[in-house]
Design a protein around this nucleic acid. Sequence first.
DNA 1: AGTCACTAACTGACTAGTTAGTCAGTGCGG
DNA 2: CCGCACTGACTAACTAGTCAGTTAGTGACT
Lengths: 246, 246
Amino acid sequence: MRGTYEALCEHGYTELTAQDIADRTDKSKSLLFYHYDSKEDLLADFLEFLFERFDERVAETRDLSPVERLAVFVDWFLYGPEENDRQSFHVAMLELRTQAPYNEAFREKLRKGDDQLRAVLEEILRDGLAAGEFSEHDPEETAALLIAAFDGARIRQLTIGRDEYLEQVRTATATWVFDDLLAEGASFPADRDPSTLPETDQQHRLAADLGTEGGNGTGDPDDETNGADADGGDAAGDEPTERDRE
Amino acid sequence: MRGTYEALCEHGYTELTAQDIADRTDKSKSLLFYHYDSKEDLLADFLEFLFERFDERVAETRDLSPVERLAVFVDWFLYGPEENDRQSFHVAMLELRTQAPYNEAFREKLRKGDDQLRAVLEEILRDGLAAGEFSEHDPEETAALLIAAFDGARIRQLTIGRDEYLEQVRTATATWVFDDLLAEGASFPADRDPSTLPETDQQHRLAADLGTEGGNGTGDPDDETNGADADGGDAAGDEPTERDRE
DNA sequence: AGTCACTAACTGACTAGTTAGTCAGTGCGG
DNA sequence: CCGCACTGACTAACTAGTCAGTTAGTGACT
């Protein structure tokens, strides 16, 4: 799994060979086919693995207010282009997503991820409504809009290299959606500054930056270099904390 | 070019072989490599070809009011899932787009397409501002938001097969953006009904449905079965009217 | 303790299938 | 007879998946 993650980052999805994955492991390529019927099978299981971690990850922000959680959500989606590991992983995930129309297993997993992602955002919106923090609206449609807009911005940034999409869409949603959503003239917290994020999330971010390396030359052999966010835009996940199976 | 288009629709991008393209032609595969240095070269030229047609296509709506043009734009982007040929083509284009991070030529063409697309939408918005039809806003940011949202909705619909994204995002943008944008309480025209579209566009739509067939068994050999929209979400284009080169 | 039987994890070497790109040569219009 | 469009047959490279066989762990029986 960790090997799969690293191999994806390095080679992307279409250029990914079974050998590449095996190379990132101390095991052989044959073993992969001993455990899985095909390469696609393995990748489908990788998706499963990714999304399993999603919910616990979200739970960490449980104690925040709806507005704050919304801000974290936005920030998590629209992270800056400077996070290189995440970027190459997301490009690979994007490649994988585009294979979903041809692959029922992928489609099913991604649908599951989509459910999770939408559930999270809708819950934030509903909580906000209930708490009177947000003005009246349809959470389902609003969630769809936000996810589509953020996903679209990310995709265009990654594919054509137009970084400005991220900030423009961030600002535009703040103007058109959040300013109206927040009833009492409150403007939306521009959470870019990591220091406003809850501590657990900061740790995750930090870890995310190290993620791919999986233990640099210098470090304590014990440190948990995990947590690189793994989201195809259909939902997210972390990647291996300890060496999970093979 | 037409062969490339049809082959893309049928096989998608990753499964597309040079032979597939040649098969859609009365020429041989070798000829492709006589004209182009590589398959990617050919595809890059295909993108160029696509985007060349974009501007003329847009020009057809020149005489409409900004509000109407905006409605046409939305409709054009968020066409329904029943248009099968367009769908498979867009899936292929999406696959192609995800290769852009690895391919400078693709990236450059797609950037050009992005420029065109944004220019069109920004012009609509600016015209609307000037005509007093739209309330004050930043056309650049708004354009970015709309394109990202529509593109994202389309992508999620295509990849995970969730058709509802299209309508939800359509409704949500109407609620959050268009209702505010249209100063005088006017609600946004729900243009789903093709009969409200200008005639030229209708013709195009119709043609689009035939697009892939390229002359069914019955038809006049002379009829122009062209016009299937070709947009990777980075901009759009038609596809061959007459057999263009090779 | 020894050894036999059984199984699951694991491997290196191999194959079969695929495909981008090449090349030597053909036909033809001017 | 030149040069251009064009072709069929070929190859070189790559890779998913297979397979025959090795190793290591576990338990059971004597």
